[in-house]
Design a protein around this nucleic acid. Structure first.
Length: 473
RNA sequence: GGCCUGUUGGUGAAGUGGUUAAACACACCGCCCUUUCACGGCGGCAUACAUGGGUUCAAAUCCCGUACAGGUCACCA
């Protein structure tokens, strides 16, 4: 049987890295087995629907290389891929379940349920529907139905025994049936609940591996009971450990730093994000950490997924991303960084200069907008040298070095990196200094920092006039 | 609160009863390279197997308890 996995987000807007990671693992399991990766939109809650969210989701996973074999945008043989367009089938299946005695009509209204909930709260126990309507007679049901009384359909859970299943990551999970609630399958508006639609769709779409966050670990037996009732084969389950933020809290959509699009806009590379995310909860056998999507596909195995939750650490992301940044062509690098500079500074008509500027940092940036953390000295002469810098300038040779260099700069006729290098060389010979003692004072006076880009290039970009001005100060 | 799951250094992790008196990577620090800086190379750091009991000749690895953390208990998905 062909392996098929699906990414089934609800169209509510943002997509944080936790969602993305699920999609990555789903994609990897499918492709590792030469299978298909499907995108399905879970939009049964019409009130939460967000305009444009589907395009947004598609755009995100596509940027990451997770091209769905089937989905709402590109179609497929198992459509429609919007749950809201599959309504006809859910109701039929729910009614079939009622006929089989595995589900029942429930007419309880909000008032009664609230009362039960309150009682449960007072007794400090978990609220569970009491199965009141399960005992309705056929006549009572017919009468209520004929009266058009609103109803839901609930799953009839067994009250005794234990349900268990094998999860590829967590092993055997056992839950006693008495803890399973008679959950609602079909809502009174005729829409299915997520839990129900999920099972029906996964079956109809012939999904073989259900890969999702481990928040479903304990409710999976309910899903299995549904598969069993219909006589369908259960899928293989792969529950993923959660991704937490640095405080150990669950990633939320509020956490902007953890949103894929925000990272993308900051100039992180999709392939680097994918690479990093794959490493969150999974490791390769040989300890390798840099993987293209193809290599990941080849090496991936759900058996090597970790059980413990992983913390999303932007520092490691930065490292992975910088790795990919170094492999960029000059053209790509410029495209990634220059827009950030343009956005912050007025650099109208200085295209060549800009190019030279950003390329100075070709091998030292973590992400695109990281360029802004490095170029301030080229736009402002308000340098704030650190204590360490000022200390360095106190050495007795410093005034002479600076004055000599100032003269050398003054004498330059053709302003180029070469002529500036020559000026440094001359200063070295005249003052009889070299190394740090020669470079640092110049660097500090001109850029205000001790760790920066190549000095001659820096001076070239800053310009003769400005350089002299800074040396004067 | 019930149920489910987890707990190896700051972070990601290797490890599934015995050359692991615990790899590797990020971060951090130092050295080398670079006449400077960065890149790169090398090295170091780190009270790391939550805790208490067992089982065993032998436990991070198996079992039980405890603690802590997360998840879940909707006509949300």
């Amino acid at each position: 049987m062909k392996v098929r996995t699906r990414f089934a987000p609800s169209p509510t807007g943002m997509m944080h890295v936790g969602n993305l990671r699920s999609a990555i693992f789903e994609y990897l399991v499918a492709k590792n087995n030469n299978g298909d990766f499907i995108l399905r939109i879970e939009d049964t809650d019409q009130s939460r629907k967000v305009e444009g969210a589907v395009e947004f989701i598609y755009d995100t996973i596509t940027k990451c290389g997770l091209i769905p074999d089937e989905g709402p945008i590109n179609g497929g043989n198992y459509g429609p891929y919007f749950q809201s367009e599959r309504l006809y089938s859910y109701k039929n299946y729910a009614e079939k379940l009622v006929e089989m005695g595995k589900a029942y009509y429930c007419f309880c209204d909000e008032e009664r349920l609230d009362k039960l909930r309150k009682e449960a709260e007072d007794r400090k126990v978990a609220f569970m529907y009491d199965g009141y309507c399960k005992n309705l007679t056929k006549e009572q049901i017919k009468e209520k139905l004929d009266n058009n009384e609103p109803y839901v359909i609930r799953q009839a859970m067994p009250k005794e025994g234990t349900s268990s299943y094998i999860d590829l990551v967590y092993g055997e999970i056992k839950v006693e049936n008495r803890y399973l609630e008679d959950q609602i399958l079909l809502k009174s508006d005729g829409f299915p609940t997520y839990n129900f639609a999920n099972v029906i769709d996964d079956h109809l779409m012939e999904i073989t591996h259900v890969i999702r966050g481990n928040e479903y670990l304990s409710s999976t037996p309910k899903y299995n009971l549904l598969y069993d009732a219909f006589g369908w084969e259960r899928p293989t389950y792969v529950h993923l450990p959660l991704v937490l933020d640095f405080d150990g809290k669950k990633l939320s959509k509020r956490n902007n730093a953890a949103s894929f699009m925000d990272l993308y806009k900051e100039g992180y590379l999709p392939e680097a994000i994918v690479n990093y995310l794959a490493l969150l909860g999974w490791s390769s056998e040989d300890g390798k950490e840099i993987f293209s999507l193809e290599e990941l596909t080849k090496n991936f195995s759900p058996k090597r997924i970790n059980k413990a939750p992983a913390i999303y650490d932007v520092k490691k992301l930065n490292w992975v991303n910088s790795h990919y940044m170094k492999k960029l062509s000059e053209e790509e690098f410029c495209n990634l960084t220059i827009p950030h500079v343009r956005k912050k500074y007025n650099v109208e008509g200085k295209d060549e200069w800009l190019r030279e500027l950003v390329l100075l940092f070709k091998n030292s940036l973590s992400y695109g907008s990281d360029i802004l953390n490095n170029v301030e000295m080229f736009f402002s002469d308000e340098l704030n040298p650190s204590e360490e810098c000022l200390e360095f300038l106190k050495q007795e040779e410093v005034p002479k070095i600076i004055n000599t260099f100032k003269d050398e700069i003054n004498n330059i006729e053709v302003w180029s990196v070469e002529s500036i290098s020559k000026a440094i060389e001359n200063t070295k010979n005249i003052t009889n200094t070299n190394g740090k003692l020669l470079y640092m004072p110049l660097r500090i006076k001109i850029s205000g920092i001790m760790h920066g880009p190549e000095l001659a290039n820096t001076i070239h970009l800053i310009g003769k006039e400005e350089t002299l001005k800074r040396l004067q100060k």
